[in-house]
Nucleic acid binder design. Structure first.
Length: 293
DNA sequence: AACATAAGCAACCGCCGACAA
DNA sequence: GTTGTCGGCGGTTGCTTATGT
Protein backbone atom coordinates (compact mmCIF):
# COMPACT_ATOMS: atom_id res chain seq x y z
CA UNK A 1 0.00 0.00 0.00
CA UNK A 2 1.36 3.32 -1.04
CA UNK A 3 1.51 5.78 1.76
CA UNK A 4 0.75 9.39 0.94
CA UNK A 5 3.77 11.51 0.18
CA UNK A 6 3.21 13.29 3.46
CA UNK A 7 0.72 13.67 6.26
CA UNK A 8 -1.93 16.03 5.03
CA UNK A 9 -2.92 17.35 8.42
CA UNK A 10 -1.59 20.67 9.57
CA UNK A 11 0.12 21.50 6.32
CA UNK A 12 -0.01 24.79 4.52
CA UNK A 13 -1.71 24.77 1.17
CA UNK A 14 -2.21 27.26 -1.60
CA UNK A 15 0.08 30.10 -2.50
CA UNK A 16 3.56 30.15 -1.06
CA UNK A 17 4.65 33.03 1.14
CA UNK A 18 7.93 34.87 0.61
CA UNK A 19 9.18 33.41 3.85
CA UNK A 20 8.47 29.85 2.74
CA UNK A 21 10.21 30.53 -0.55
CA UNK A 22 13.22 31.81 1.30
CA UNK A 23 13.39 28.79 3.58
CA UNK A 24 13.07 26.36 0.70
CA UNK A 25 15.62 28.16 -1.45
CA UNK A 26 18.10 28.37 1.37
CA UNK A 27 17.67 24.73 2.26
CA UNK A 28 18.08 23.44 -1.29
CA UNK A 29 21.06 25.66 -1.94
CA UNK A 30 22.81 24.30 1.10
CA UNK A 31 21.63 20.67 0.93
CA UNK A 32 20.79 20.13 -2.71
CA UNK A 33 17.68 18.80 -4.39
CA UNK A 34 16.12 15.42 -3.73
CA UNK A 35 14.64 13.56 -0.78
CA UNK A 36 11.52 15.58 -1.29
CA UNK A 37 9.44 13.55 1.10
CA UNK A 38 11.61 14.37 4.05
CA UNK A 39 12.65 17.80 2.89
CA UNK A 40 9.78 19.78 4.46
CA UNK A 41 10.47 18.35 7.91
CA UNK A 42 14.21 18.89 7.65
CA UNK A 43 13.79 22.37 6.26
CA UNK A 44 11.11 23.25 8.77
CA UNK A 45 8.37 23.80 6.23
CA UNK A 46 4.75 22.92 6.76
CA UNK A 47 4.39 21.76 3.20
CA UNK A 48 3.99 18.54 1.30
CA UNK A 49 7.19 17.28 -0.27
CA UNK A 50 5.63 17.31 -3.67
CA UNK A 51 4.55 20.86 -3.15
CA UNK A 52 8.14 21.81 -2.28
CA UNK A 53 9.47 20.12 -5.36
CA UNK A 54 6.91 21.82 -7.57
CA UNK A 55 7.61 25.20 -6.07
CA UNK A 56 11.32 24.77 -6.57
CA UNK A 57 11.11 23.38 -10.09
CA UNK A 58 8.55 25.83 -11.40
CA UNK A 59 9.41 28.98 -9.56
CA UNK A 60 12.46 29.13 -7.34
CA UNK A 61 15.06 27.28 -9.35
CA UNK A 62 17.80 29.54 -10.73
CA UNK A 63 17.65 30.74 -14.33
CA UNK A 64 13.91 30.33 -14.60
CA UNK A 65 12.56 32.69 -17.24
CA UNK A 66 9.08 33.92 -16.56
CA UNK A 67 6.59 35.39 -19.00
CA UNK A 68 7.34 37.12 -22.28
CA UNK A 69 7.43 34.03 -24.40
CA UNK A 70 8.84 35.33 -27.66
CA UNK A 71 7.76 34.42 -31.17
CA UNK A 72 10.62 32.02 -31.68
CA UNK A 73 9.80 30.17 -28.48
CA UNK A 74 6.15 30.09 -29.47
CA UNK A 75 6.99 28.67 -32.86
CA UNK A 76 9.14 26.05 -31.22
CA UNK A 77 6.35 25.11 -28.84
CA UNK A 78 3.92 24.75 -31.72
CA UNK A 79 6.25 22.56 -33.71
CA UNK A 80 7.28 20.49 -30.73
CA UNK A 81 3.67 20.00 -29.75
CA UNK A 82 2.86 18.87 -33.23
CA UNK A 83 5.63 16.35 -32.98
CA UNK A 84 5.24 15.21 -29.40
CA UNK A 85 1.72 16.01 -28.29
CA UNK A 86 1.20 17.04 -24.67
CA UNK A 87 4.67 16.04 -23.60
CA UNK A 88 5.25 19.26 -21.74
CA UNK A 89 8.36 18.18 -19.94
CA UNK A 90 9.99 17.20 -23.20
CA UNK A 91 8.99 20.43 -24.84
CA UNK A 92 10.15 22.48 -21.89
CA UNK A 93 13.49 20.69 -21.93
CA UNK A 94 14.17 22.32 -25.28
CA UNK A 95 13.26 25.78 -24.05
CA UNK A 96 16.02 26.90 -21.69
CA UNK A 97 14.64 28.49 -18.55
CA UNK A 98 11.06 27.46 -19.24
CA UNK A 99 9.15 24.97 -17.13
CA UNK A 100 6.71 22.33 -18.24
CA UNK A 101 4.01 24.00 -16.21
CA UNK A 102 4.56 27.31 -17.93
CA UNK A 103 4.56 25.75 -21.36
CA UNK A 104 1.42 23.82 -20.50
CA UNK A 105 -0.33 26.93 -19.24
CA UNK A 106 0.79 28.93 -22.23
CA UNK A 107 -0.51 26.28 -24.55
CA UNK A 108 -3.84 26.01 -22.77
CA UNK A 109 -4.43 29.74 -22.59
CA UNK A 110 -2.92 30.98 -25.82
CA UNK A 111 -1.90 28.47 -28.40
CA UNK A 112 -4.58 25.83 -28.05
CA UNK A 113 -7.42 28.17 -28.91
CA UNK A 114 -5.48 29.75 -31.73
CA UNK A 115 -4.57 26.47 -33.34
CA UNK A 116 -8.00 25.05 -32.73
CA UNK A 117 -9.58 27.96 -34.57
CA UNK A 118 -7.09 27.48 -37.35
CA UNK A 119 -7.95 23.81 -37.56
CA UNK A 120 -11.61 24.53 -37.55
CA UNK A 121 -11.21 27.02 -40.34
CA UNK A 122 -9.22 24.44 -42.18
CA UNK A 123 -11.94 21.83 -41.74
CA UNK A 124 -14.82 24.27 -42.08
CA UNK A 125 -16.04 23.88 -38.53
CA UNK A 126 -17.49 26.37 -36.07
CA UNK A 127 -15.29 28.42 -33.83
CA UNK A 128 -15.92 28.57 -30.11
CA UNK A 129 -17.44 31.98 -30.41
CA UNK A 130 -19.78 30.83 -33.13
CA UNK A 131 -20.95 27.89 -31.12
CA UNK A 132 -21.31 29.93 -27.97
CA UNK A 133 -18.96 27.83 -25.91
CA UNK A 134 -17.08 29.29 -23.02
CA UNK A 135 -13.87 28.19 -21.42
CA UNK A 136 -13.05 24.62 -22.34
CA UNK A 137 -11.79 22.37 -19.60
CA UNK A 138 -12.27 18.96 -21.04
CA UNK A 139 -9.94 17.43 -23.51
CA UNK A 140 -11.14 17.93 -27.03
CA UNK A 141 -9.95 15.55 -29.63
CA UNK A 142 -10.17 18.17 -32.30
CA UNK A 143 -7.83 20.41 -30.42
CA UNK A 144 -4.77 21.00 -32.42
CA UNK A 145 -2.10 18.48 -32.42
CA UNK A 146 -4.78 15.98 -31.67
CA UNK A 147 -6.87 16.69 -34.73
CA UNK A 148 -4.73 14.11 -36.34
CA UNK A 149 -4.00 10.92 -34.54
CA UNK A 150 -0.96 10.63 -32.38
CA UNK A 151 0.44 7.19 -32.11
CA UNK A 152 2.71 5.67 -29.55
CA UNK A 153 5.37 3.74 -31.32
CA UNK A 154 7.76 1.05 -30.39
CA UNK A 155 11.37 1.99 -30.74
CA UNK A 156 13.96 -0.26 -32.27
CA UNK A 157 17.51 -0.92 -31.33
CA UNK A 158 19.89 1.85 -32.16
CA UNK A 159 23.33 1.85 -30.71
CA UNK A 160 25.06 4.79 -32.27
CA UNK A 161 24.28 7.60 -34.64
CA UNK A 162 26.80 10.22 -35.59
CA UNK A 163 26.21 13.60 -37.14
CA UNK A 164 28.64 15.60 -39.12
CA UNK A 165 30.06 18.34 -36.92
CA UNK A 166 29.97 21.05 -39.59
CA UNK A 167 27.42 23.86 -39.21
CA UNK A 168 24.09 23.15 -40.80
CA UNK A 169 22.12 25.27 -43.17
CA UNK A 170 18.37 25.04 -42.87
CA UNK A 171 18.13 23.55 -46.34
CA UNK A 172 20.37 20.77 -45.19
CA UNK A 173 18.00 19.74 -42.47
CA UNK A 174 16.61 16.73 -44.23
CA UNK A 175 20.07 15.66 -45.16
CA UNK A 176 20.62 15.06 -41.47
CA UNK A 177 18.22 12.19 -41.73
CA UNK A 178 20.65 10.29 -43.83
CA UNK A 179 23.43 10.34 -41.31
CA UNK A 180 24.35 6.71 -41.04
CA UNK A 181 21.61 5.04 -39.04
CA UNK A 182 22.45 1.62 -37.78
CA UNK A 183 20.59 -1.62 -37.87
CA UNK A 184 20.08 -3.88 -34.90
CA UNK A 185 23.32 -5.58 -35.72
CA UNK A 186 25.15 -2.31 -35.76
CA UNK A 187 25.63 -2.21 -39.51
CA UNK A 188 24.78 0.84 -41.55
CA UNK A 189 21.42 0.72 -43.25
CA UNK A 190 21.30 0.39 -46.97
CA UNK A 191 20.27 3.32 -49.13
CA UNK A 192 16.89 1.70 -49.64
CA UNK A 193 16.04 2.64 -46.06
CA UNK A 194 16.47 6.34 -46.53
CA UNK A 195 13.67 8.83 -46.12
CA UNK A 196 12.54 9.06 -49.71
CA UNK A 197 11.66 5.43 -49.59
CA UNK A 198 7.94 5.14 -49.03
CA UNK A 199 8.22 1.57 -47.93
CA UNK A 200 6.84 1.09 -44.43
CA UNK A 201 9.90 -1.01 -43.71
CA UNK A 202 11.75 2.22 -43.64
CA UNK A 203 9.83 3.22 -40.56
CA UNK A 204 10.33 -0.10 -38.89
CA UNK A 205 13.98 -0.51 -39.64
CA UNK A 206 15.10 3.04 -39.35
CA UNK A 207 13.30 3.81 -36.16
CA UNK A 208 10.81 6.59 -36.00
CA UNK A 209 12.57 8.29 -33.13
CA UNK A 210 15.72 8.51 -35.11
CA UNK A 211 13.84 10.70 -37.49
CA UNK A 212 12.59 12.94 -34.81
CA UNK A 213 15.81 13.54 -32.99
CA UNK A 214 17.39 15.25 -35.98
CA UNK A 215 14.26 17.28 -36.49
CA UNK A 216 14.39 18.49 -32.95
CA UNK A 217 18.05 19.22 -33.35
CA UNK A 218 17.08 21.31 -36.32
CA UNK A 219 14.50 23.11 -34.29
CA UNK A 220 17.03 23.82 -31.62
CA UNK A 221 19.69 24.92 -34.03
CA UNK A 222 17.38 27.23 -35.95
CA UNK A 223 15.98 28.53 -32.71
CA UNK A 224 19.44 29.11 -31.38
CA UNK A 225 20.55 30.91 -34.49
CA UNK A 226 17.73 33.36 -34.15
CA UNK A 227 18.48 33.93 -30.50
CA UNK A 228 22.18 34.02 -30.91
CA UNK A 229 21.66 36.87 -33.34
CA UNK A 230 19.86 38.68 -30.58
CA UNK A 231 22.44 37.75 -28.04
CA UNK A 232 19.91 35.89 -25.97
CA UNK A 233 21.18 32.35 -25.99
CA UNK A 234 23.87 30.49 -27.73
CA UNK A 235 24.24 27.32 -25.77
CA UNK A 236 22.46 25.15 -28.31
CA UNK A 237 24.30 26.20 -31.40
CA UNK A 238 26.66 23.33 -31.59
CA UNK A 239 24.58 20.31 -32.28
CA UNK A 240 27.47 18.04 -32.95
CA UNK A 241 26.51 14.48 -32.51
CA UNK A 242 24.01 11.98 -31.30
CA UNK A 243 25.36 9.18 -29.27
CA UNK A 244 23.67 6.12 -27.89
CA UNK A 245 26.20 4.28 -25.77
CA UNK A 246 25.38 0.63 -25.98
CA UNK A 247 25.71 0.09 -22.27
CA UNK A 248 23.14 2.81 -21.62
CA UNK A 249 20.79 1.64 -24.30
CA UNK A 250 19.55 -1.84 -23.73
CA UNK A 251 17.13 -0.86 -26.46
CA UNK A 252 14.65 -3.60 -26.13
CA UNK A 253 12.04 -3.24 -28.82
CA UNK A 254 9.71 -1.48 -26.41
CA UNK A 255 12.04 1.21 -25.25
CA UNK A 256 15.15 2.54 -26.83
CA UNK A 257 17.00 5.19 -24.86
CA UNK A 258 16.95 8.07 -27.25
CA UNK A 259 19.59 10.46 -26.18
CA UNK A 260 21.27 13.25 -27.97
CA UNK A 261 23.76 15.87 -27.06
CA UNK A 262 23.27 19.53 -27.72
CA UNK A 263 25.98 21.89 -26.68
CA UNK A 264 27.29 19.41 -24.16
CA UNK A 265 23.87 18.92 -22.63
CA UNK A 266 22.21 15.53 -22.80
CA UNK A 267 18.62 15.14 -23.80
CA UNK A 268 16.40 12.12 -23.74
CA UNK A 269 13.77 11.81 -26.31
CA UNK A 270 10.79 9.74 -25.39
CA UNK A 271 7.63 10.71 -27.08
CA UNK A 272 4.47 9.96 -28.87
CA UNK A 273 4.92 10.30 -32.55
CA UNK A 274 2.69 12.39 -34.70
CA UNK A 275 2.71 10.81 -38.10
CA UNK A 276 1.30 13.85 -39.80
CA UNK A 277 4.22 15.79 -38.51
CA UNK A 278 6.42 13.03 -39.68
CA UNK A 279 4.90 13.14 -43.12
CA UNK A 280 5.59 16.83 -43.38
CA UNK A 281 9.04 16.20 -42.10
CA UNK A 282 9.61 13.68 -44.83
CA UNK A 283 7.81 15.68 -47.43
CA UNK A 284 5.55 12.73 -48.04
CA UNK A 285 1.81 12.73 -47.72
CA UNK A 286 0.82 9.85 -45.50
CA UNK A 287 -2.28 11.50 -44.07
CA UNK A 288 -4.41 8.67 -45.23
CA UNK A 289 -2.34 5.95 -43.73
CA UNK A 290 -1.76 5.12 -40.14
CA UNK A 291 1.26 3.02 -39.47
CA UNK A 292 1.13 1.02 -36.30
CA UNK A 293 3.36 -1.79 -35.27
C1' DA B 1 -19.14 51.84 -9.48
C1' DA B 2 -20.80 47.22 -9.29
C1' DC B 3 -21.30 43.01 -11.02
C1' DA B 4 -20.50 39.08 -14.30
C1' DT B 5 -17.63 36.63 -17.15
C1' DA B 6 -13.26 35.31 -19.17
C1' DA B 7 -8.44 34.67 -18.97
C1' DG B 8 -4.06 33.65 -16.68
C1' DC B 9 -1.50 30.91 -13.87
C1' DA B 10 0.20 28.66 -9.49
C1' DA B 11 -0.70 24.73 -7.16
C1' DC B 12 -2.77 20.24 -6.36
C1' DC B 13 -4.01 15.42 -7.51
C1' DG B 14 -3.49 10.95 -9.11
C1' DC B 15 -1.09 7.98 -11.96
C1' DC B 16 3.05 5.80 -13.66
C1' DG B 17 7.86 4.14 -14.36
C1' DA B 18 12.22 3.25 -12.24
C1' DC B 19 14.46 1.37 -8.68
C1' DA B 20 15.59 -1.08 -4.43
C1' DA B 21 14.65 -4.44 -0.91
C1' DG C 1 8.34 -11.97 -9.07
C1' DT C 2 6.36 -8.92 -5.58
C1' DT C 3 6.01 -4.94 -2.92
C1' DG C 4 7.04 -0.35 -1.39
C1' DT C 5 9.19 4.17 -2.23
C1' DC C 6 10.46 8.00 -4.82
C1' DG C 7 10.39 11.35 -8.30
C1' DG C 8 8.29 13.02 -12.31
C1' DC C 9 4.54 13.94 -15.43
C1' DG C 10 0.10 15.51 -17.34
C1' DG C 11 -4.53 16.83 -16.26
C1' DT C 12 -7.26 19.61 -13.52
C1' DT C 13 -8.70 22.94 -10.04
C1' DG C 14 -9.43 27.18 -8.03
C1' DC C 15 -7.76 31.74 -6.89
C1' DT C 16 -6.55 36.26 -8.80
C1' DT C 17 -6.68 39.62 -12.27
C1' DA C 18 -8.48 41.67 -16.47
C1' DT C 19 -12.19 42.89 -19.34
C1' DG C 20 -16.90 43.64 -20.62
C1' DT C 21 -21.65 45.24 -19.59
Amino acid sequence: MRRPCCAKEGLNRGAWSAEEDEILTYYIKSHGEGQWRDLPQRAGLKRCGKSCRLRWVNYLRPYIKRGNICEEEEELILRMHKLLGNRWALIAARLPGRTDNEIKNYWNTNLRKRVRDRDRQKFGMQTDNESGQGRLRIANSIVSGEAHRVIRTKAVRCTKVLFQPQPLEKEQSHAMLSDVPLTDSGNPLSSSHYPNDKNIDFLVDFGIDDLLAPDIDLLMSSYSMVHADKGIINEHKDVTHVNFPAEESPCAPMGCARRFVVGGEHFDLNGEIDFNALSSLLGEGCDDEIFAY
